[in-house]
Design a protein around this nucleic acid. Sequence first.
DNA 1: TCTGGGGTCCTAGGACCC
DNA 2: TCTGGGGTCCTAGGACCC
Length: 429
Amino acid sequence: MAAAKQPAVSGTGVPRTVFVRTIFHVDMDAFFVSVEELYDPSLKGKAVVVGGQRDERGVVSAASYEARKFGVHSAMPLRTAAKMCPHAIFVDGHPERYRVCSEKVYKVLGTFSPQVEMASIDEAYLDMTGTERLHGPPLKAAHTLHQRMKADTQLNCSVGIGTSRLIAKVSSAQAKPNGVLWIVPGEEAKFLAPLEVREIPGVGKVMETHLHALGIQKVGDLTKLEESELENRFGKWGLALAGKARGEDAGGWFDTEVGEDVGAKSISHEHTYDEDTADVNQLEATLMRLSEMVGRRLREANFYARTIQLKLRYKDFTTITRAYTLPAPTQLDTEIFEQIRALFHKNWKKGAQVRLLGVQASSFATAPDQISLLDGSRQQRWKDALAAADRLRDKFGESSVKLATGMRGVFRERTHENPASLPGKIRKK
DNA sequence: TCTGGGGTCCTAGGACCC
DNA sequence: TCTGGGGTCCTAGGACCC
């Protein structure tokens, strides 16, 4: 525990204690491919592509190291992968298998730290700060973890160790395959400097192009720039980028505690047709199925969604999203479908060939609050009445407005009343 | 080459309110 | 009658990640 703390000197010269965190990033090697090999050992050592068949519409989910030698990588169209590596074995994905293995991985990690956070199905962050007495110094702990992972799951992983999520994440990538890499506290900037800017999580194709245009290739080039220059050019993101170049968890999700449970923000399902279609019956059937899938997930999680969104992609890949926010949250298939159907017919260019449809639910409440237990029209009237009361208060002063006694009772008994008449129930002195 | 499916976060603009 | 400024909610699109 004591080793995790380092004495430091504050601006006033008074010694204080600063926590140096020890973060592990554990990343499974070629996860989907490795899991498929467990089910079919004959795949071992071969060029394997997971995600679908060679002639299908779709992209590569994962490629074995053997296939990567031919330039195949994830997110590449399957048909492209087939051309680059004709002898590759193409395997359909099995999400259920990956979920089962992911849980085994999680179990192993849980024996090393109480603060474990699965960042996706095949990678996790561990806060190992203060675990020295139990597991020894970082490198020793990492090697033990590495071995136990192999023993318990038969899967390889790579472990990055650093003082921030960012350093841990970047170092695990450098440790691949099947390795461990520890960036000693204080050496963060030195470690990052020679790496391509693209290695920084959050820098994608577009940002990379922008940076290259400025003559910035390596992370070290970034640190030579004034922070204000980056902020001027890229706004809030530029400022965060300056911090990342120094190895800090600057801004956004990276700044959160490891293991801090952030609930889901949206649930969605989408479908790409094997062949584009303009058949209304087929399109509506798909929307119905997707609405049901979303509804079921909402009920399983006990979420109620207020915002329902349609996604529509045409033959030429142009994509639109259209959303509608309900007056009261729902988890019912029928309500979701009703809104999705309306959105679809309002926005679909009739007769146009559709490639993809998607349904998303968001703006969650764990349970409908008191007011949304009322049905839609009643709830709207509540809102209208409360808003009207607020307006009157603003105009005439606090004492001028009192809601009629038994407002709830009035609502219950007079459900068919025109909402416009409600402000009449508010007395003005 | 012809582009999946599941997510998160950010930005920008408009409506509406005070 | 015109003006303004801040805050919140909502929508649409896009970058990015695995």
